[in-house]
Each structure stands twice: as structure tokens, then as C-alpha cells.
Amino acid sequence: MTEQAAAEKGLAVSDEVMIDIRNMHKWYGQFHVLKDINITVKKGERIVVCGPSGSGKSTMIRCINRLEEHQKGQIIVQGVELTSDLKQIEAIRREVGMVFQHFNLFPHLTVLENCALAPIWVRKMPRAEAEEIGMKYLERVKIPEQAKKYPGQLSGGQQQRVAIARSLCMSPNVMLFDEPTSALDPEMIKEVLDTMIELAEEGMTMIVVTHEMGFAKTVANRVIFMDEGQIIEEEEPETFFEHPKNDRTKLFLSQILAH
């Protein structure tokens, strides 16, 4: 089984720092959404972020590619600090892939055109080459036969796999997943998780906001628990699930693992 295989491999993590978040704060008007966030992600690490809804976990990963702006502290991606400098933001977005809860595929383009769009217009690739890469990643997520269809003709699970392929076409160094399975029917969750596990096995650096604790247990190097805009606990999955220190973590785990 792929999940066990991933766990047994004990994938290599290098010392190279990919993402460094230091004393980061964010406000929505008067509302203090993120309070003093500190996270260091090394190359090849797989981080799972969980917490109750409204805890700021999505907002936090959306700060990493500047879909949200932080007001205080530093976010450094591959040695480049995120500021309001548009050139730097674009440079970072090119290297950081993101998968959304609601897929956000472009409905007016075919699956293959969705994949080829950014390589053509951002990487300035010839169309033929971009489509070749698109097909390669569509095969990787096991839906090459859907290439000529439009997103509206696919199931939710297929759409999310296309979204993953679309991100991979930019050959990112880091992948951010913002609740990738939350909008899916139960029988489609597995196909998306399997794709993500394969990605992890290939050594992709990943930050995943999810409630899939099975995924966290088998794939994650570390689990981060957030509540009310703060990081409450940051542990290896074994320690996190077996011996949580904080009462809030215990409460959250008891609720989420109860059913």
C-alpha cells in the first residue's frame, strides 16, 4: 500500500531551508488573525497544518505566496523575502504551487489548456513543449484521457487532480495545499490523497492544510496545530497524536477522532 510505503521510506529531508516564517502577524482591520507565527520548512519536508475552522491556517499558507498580505514579521521563501515588490512576488509565485479547496480550474479552457497556460505565458515555453509537459503531469495524476475535456465535464476528484497537475507543470519547489479534499465526496477523497502521497514520495516539499488525520499520520514530518491565530503545538505525528501536550490540542483531537 502506498501510504505505508511512504511511511517506511522515511523520506530524506535536507538541511536547505525552503520557507522561513519569522514573527509574522496579520490583521484584518482591527482583527488580529495571525499572531507571532514562526515556522521553518526544510527542503523535502511535509508539514500538515490542522486546527478548528477560523484558526487562521488557510490565511497562514495564503500568506506564503502573497494571496494575503502580512503586516509584521518576515516570510522568506528560498532566500527571497516577500515584500510588496511585485517582481519578487511574481518570482516566488512561479516557484510555489498552490492547490485550492474549490479547485479553481479555468472553466473556459480544456484540461490540457489549463495545464499549459502558465508554462506558455509565464515560462514563455513553446505551445508544443508546454502541452507535452501538461500531458506528462496529467499522466502522473492518471487522467491523460480527459485532456481534451472541459473542467465542467469532470468529477470533483478528477478536477482536483487536474489542479494538482496544473500546479506541477510550473515545476514548483514547494506545493501548498489549502484543504484539498474538503469540497470532495467521500469516495473521491482517496484518489486525491493517493496523488498527494505519490508526490510526497517523490520528495516534494509540501505544506498541507487538511483535516485528513490519516494523511498526517502517514506522510507528515511534522504536524502543526493552530487555534485563534496562534501555533499551539508543533510535533512529529507520533508524538502529536499519542501524547499531545496542550489541552486545546487534546480537545480538538478527541472531537476529530471521535467519529
Binding site: 509565485r93 498552490m98 485550492f100 479553481n104 480550474l105 473556459h108 489542479a163 510550473m170
Partner: peptide, 27 residues
Amino acid sequence: VAHGQTEAAYALGLRPNSTLRLVILPQ
């Protein structure tokens, strides 16, 4: 056009004017 479309385009590294031209306006 849903805001998610703009975010997805930005996340792929597309510039605002390319996003408007290739993603938002056609829809």
C-alpha cells in the same frame, strides 16, 4: 467571475494584466 479564478492565476505566477486578458475577460 469568481475571485478564486484570479487567485489561481496569480498562484501560477501570471501577472495581473495577463490574468485579466487570459482568465477573467474570456469568462
